[in-house]
Design a protein around this nucleic acid. Sequence first.
DNA 1: TGCAAAATCACCCAAAAGGGTGACGACAAC
DNA 2: GTTGTCGTCACCCTTTTGGGTGATTTTGCA
Lengths: 148, 148
Amino acid sequence: MKRQVLIYGLIGGLLITVLKWTEYRFLVIEHSIEIYGALVAALFAGLGIWLGQTLTRKKPAVILKEVPTAAAGPFAADEMRVSELGITARELEILGLIASGLSNREIAGRLFVSENTVKTHSSRLFDKLGAKRRTQAVQIGKTARLIP
Amino acid sequence: MKRQVLIYGLIGGLLITVLKWTEYRFLVIEHSIEIYGALVAALFAGLGIWLGQTLTRKKPAVILKEVPTAAAGPFAADEMRVSELGITARELEILGLIASGLSNREIAGRLFVSENTVKTHSSRLFDKLGAKRRTQAVQIGKTARLIP
DNA sequence: TGCAAAATCACCCAAAAGGGTGACGACAAC
DNA sequence: GTTGTCGTCACCCTTTTGGGTGATTTTGCA
């Protein structure tokens, strides 16, 4: 912005000089008319700039660029915390299935075991996680990086 | 920048020519000063607009936006899909609370509404999401980027 | 101002989930 | 061979969740 003002000032000065030069060069009548013209010119040039800036102002064209932030790689459960909490492989498996939104019956069907088995597994799982609900177990499991 | 100076020179020359022309043309007419001023004003207004546009033209501002493909970042719900599914703000809020592992009663307490209200909200939410269980709703909500 | 959407609440009923207890077989470790 | 863990299953009971219906109040927008 500073450079603009500078350039504009220079141009204005140059302009006045030119006008004065034309005044001396082509002086026939009143020499005030050129100065008058220069003033008007400068004024309206400023106005023009302001107008051009104001009327045609468009928001900075935002170009969105996708930057993949840590594209989740193949997940691996945090072995540390798993053994820390004493969670068995079966329980972890069931936690994953719970997180994917399956009911106990669906889990039982998928693992070819009875629904009661799933319930005991999940019961012990919740106990180890300190969860009271399956949704809470999922939340805890995610923050503890037991599941993706 | 060089071309600008060139163009400016040309315009200056043209201007002088025009001025001379108008000078000769309307010299005989005594009341030409207003027309002269207006002409200069209009000309410089146009020039000002052009200048303002040219000098202050910014390159298309490319703003890199981190689009977390799979992880992290201050989360913002996918407005598109939210309105697409007809999910209201309240329902989205409750989805978030469900995802954080709260029971309906706890959600009701936190939002200062009755448990029944939470149940109707979640019921309609599951309907819109096509979920049968809250865990499934959470799973769908996460993959649809409705919740973190 | 008046309508439509959203938010609120109630009641009933069925299904799912969760807690507790007990039991049994397989398998590895001591 | 005893012990401990793991996976499996059953039964009972309570709590939570979900479905359906209806109604009232708030609110945003035309």
